[in-house]
């Protein structure tokens, strides 16, 4: 029981291929095997959203997926969002400008969820932003500045 399986996926434009135990969670694969530690683990039980990444462009919680389920797919993590080392992604820029983070622990997941939200609802109302980020918890900010940042990014119309 528990023979390893080969998984191959594209993470942030780079092909990754490793032998993993089938029970390896995607978030552990991303952090421990691929060394991409920008994706955080908060609750480890699909509640907080800190582990949110994009699977084929859609936000998912990587603590509630097996690495084998992502085999063959395109993934983006927080490291893959910015266009270059010098320039932030518009959502990251908006978080920066609106002071949408304090300790920053929720931020990678929050930003990934927010980008996915604007992809699905490009011009959300404030209520749509609050409900759209329902799967992400922040213990510091009280959410107001996060919502402001998402609305600012939407208004700029450059979320993608």
């Amino acid at each position: 029981m528990g023979d390893t399986v080969q998984v191959t996926m594209n993470i942030n434009g780079t092909a990754q291929s490793h032998d993993v135990e089938p029970r390896t969670l995607l978030v552990h694969y991303i952090r421990d095997v691929c060394g991409l530690t920008g994706t955080n683990i908060g609750c480890d039980s699909s509640s907080c959203g800190a582990c949110t990444i994009h699977l084929d462009g859609e936000a998912v919680k990587s603590c509630t997926m097996l690495a084998v389920q992502a085999d063959g797919h395109d993934l983006t993590t927080i490291e893959g969002l910015a266009p270059s080392a010098e320039k932030l992604h518009p959502m990251q820029q908006a978080f920066h400008e609106c002071h949408a983070l304090q300790c920053g622990y929720c931020t990678p997941g929050m930003v990934m969820a927010a980008v996915s939200l604007l992809d699905e609802v490009p011009n959300p109302t404030e209520r749509q932003v609050r409900i759209g980020l329902e799967g992400n918890l922040c213990r510091c900010t009280g959410y107001h500045n996060i919502v402001k940042a998402v609305l600012q990014c939407a208004a700029e119309g450059v979320a993608k």
Partner: peptide, 9 residues
């Protein structure tokens, strides 16, 4: 159902 991430899976 749940939240957007849950509904994507």
């Amino acid at each position: 159902v749940g939240d957007p991430q849950v509904r994507h899976r």
